[in-house]
Amino acid sequence: MPKRIVIGMTGATGQIYGIRALQLLQETEYEVHLILSNAGKINVTQEADYEVSEVTDLADVVHDVKNIGAETASGSFQTEGMLIAPCSMKTLSNIAHGSSGDLITRSADVALKERRPLVLMPREKPFNRIHLKNMLEVTDAGAIVFPPFPSFYQGPMNLDDMITRTTARALSQLSVRIEVDEWEGLDSTNETQ
């Protein structure tokens, strides 16, 4: 049986994170199942300068977001987990409250009930109290909230480096190993006393 990863892409800004996850997974042995929301399709063309077909071509299997009977809607369909990148606050709220109205939220609910990793990359700023409470709810249910905040300590050369590193770190929460430079610590001669 192949090792499978489910990728959900909602309509939030940050479509490049979902696209980069798909690109990185192409270099692995994982079978990738993509669920792209209708709002996600709009934002792919609006902000990421990709055609929807270019994004769907990066996945092994593409599921219609309205098809609640797709394989990923059942716990008997074995996966290594799910990444939702980007994750809208609407989707986060639905997951937090067990509202499975489409295939993305149903697949996320399946990941939680089967105790499989569920990684959410929420895109919003600033967070209001409702957002934060929903993040606590999904965390308490077993999900990993992974906002795509870039890191600077390894001296990224450009935005593309930052997107790749952040996405690779998110995928590592699903035990997907992507080659990126690891932090080697500070040289002890540079540490302050």
Rank of each mutant, 00 (worst) to 15 (best):
E179P: 14
Y30P: 01
F146K: 12
G98A: 08
F152A: 14
N134K: 07
L132H: 13
E71R: 14
T79F: 01
R115C: 10
G142A: 10
K113A: 08
K3L: 08
F149W: 10
E182P: 14
T192A: 10
I104W: 04
A70H: 06
T56H: 06
M1W: 03
M1L: 12
E71Q: 15
I104D: 00
Q154R: 15
L118N: 13
G11A: 05
K125S: 14
T189W: 00
I7R: 09
A85P: 07
R177T: 13
G101A: 12
H33N: 09
P148E: 12
L171V: 07
N94F: 00
L103G: 02
D49K: 01
H63W: 00
I163N: 15
I7Q: 12
P122L: 07
T13I: 05
I84V: 05
D161T: 05
S188I: 08
V32Q: 06
Y153C: 05
L25H: 02
R177V: 14
L112Y: 09
D187L: 08
I19F: 06
E182M: 12
D187E: 15
S53D: 13
I84N: 03
S151G: 14
A70N: 09
Q23C: 04
S74L: 06
N128L: 10
D161K: 01
A170D: 12
Y153V: 04
N158G: 15
L171M: 11
S175F: 04
G75Y: 00
F77E: 00
